[in-house]
Design a protein around this nucleic acid. Structure first.
Lengths: 195, 195
DNA sequence: CGTTGTATTGACACTGGTCAAGCATGGTGG
DNA sequence: CCACCATGCTTGACCAGTGTCAATACAACG
């Protein structure tokens, strides 16, 4: 298991038929390799998407730490639950949204996360993904991702300059993506000591 | 939060456009309402699919318990991680599998889970779902679910009798669904005391 | 300069959605 | 006991959305 300290990464699975599903993009502060806690073999592949710096740690050490400091353990559980929620939202996106909405969802999510990491310049940010990677993340082909990007641009919702993207109409994108910002619903109050 | 003691349930989200994405089917022993631990408001709806019996418990009590018994806390974290893994697999299914494979995945998953609960009779089991529910779970319309069921039956992979389904060729179904049984990879050895 | 990977675009095929109709099934009230 | 109704299942015809294939244009890089 690793803590991502600097740079970006992504995790994916390869299916038997050779196709790839990107599960998650990682930004500084994320924990990589959760599944090592519950499974013998790693079930997903993590690759860096840029120069990156990670802090490895051993799961047995983590367990010792959680035992000594239960509150820390609870906090980590909460992190796992937030991950679970992100997955739920992505499930809904893949299952019940059309191609345009999925690309919009990806853009909005990436902007929000990069913004939270100080990696965005307002609504402009560098989406360090090939269109094939975008497709593998949202269940589309690279060709169709390209068409949807063009469409979003023609609709005046985004602009592109090289690999930099600017979100012009966050609301419209979020709407077509059925995007819900979860951050304001987070409630970790129970983590504080019951004094 | 609840522990499902008897019966079956499912959890879903409703999107802004009115469509429904079923996230998970629950069987006896499952914990319902995880998201209450990390969020102020519940983000998903849980409904019983049959007569059911649940044991409610309060999250503050849970936290106290986890603090007193860190090992229990770790075990719950592990449960959350298993949930996360199930979601990952479903994500790959929705993103990278065709309609036939998705229906196959649903059937195989349901059979395995019901089998684990003693709710299946060998390869025959009662799939207590309408075709619309099946569709909402795997991102298809009810009509197309029906077509895929017919196709699977014509291919000799399943038979249907009323609402009972028999899996005739588990291997072929699992293959087209890119299904991976995770249970033999689970490793919770780290939960045992480091003596 | 070639080479390689990525982006862009068009033509076409096919999967899955939509709409509509008919059919079973089981429950309900008379 | 039976007519009636609601719900879900089944099927066909047609269409929209997405994938596939192929050709071209770029850009980075040795």
């Amino acid at each position: 298991m690793f803590l991502l300290r600097r740079g970006t990464a992504m995790s994916y699975v390869l299916l038997r038929d050779g196709s790839r599903q990107i599960l998650r993009f990682h930004f500084p502060g994320d924990i990589l390799g959760w599944s090592a806690l519950a499974f013998r073999h790693s079930l997903e592949t993590v690759v860096a998407m840029s120069d990156a710096e990670v802090a490895p740690f051993d799961r047995t050490a983590l367990v010792a730490l959680m035992t000594q400091n239960p509150r820390l353990g609870a906090a980590l559980s909460a992190l796992a639950l937030l991950e679970r929620q992100v997955m739920s939202d992505r499930l809904a996106t893949l299952g019940r949204t059309d191609a345009r909405g999925r690309v919009a969802a990806l853009l909005v999510e990436m902007r929000d996360r990069m913004s939270a990491c100080g990696m965005a310049n307002g609504d402009e940010f560098q989406l360090g993904l090939t269109q094939e990677e975008m497709g593998d993340a949202v269940g589309l082909t690279a060709v169709h991702v390209n068409r949807m990007l063009r469409l979003l641009e023609e609709e005046g919702l985004i602009t592109r300059a090289g690999s930099r993207v600017t979100v012009l109409n966050h609301g419209a994108l979020a709407q077509m993506a059925n995007y819900v910002d979860r951050s304001d619903g987070v409630d970790l109050e129970w983590l504080t000591p019951a004094r």
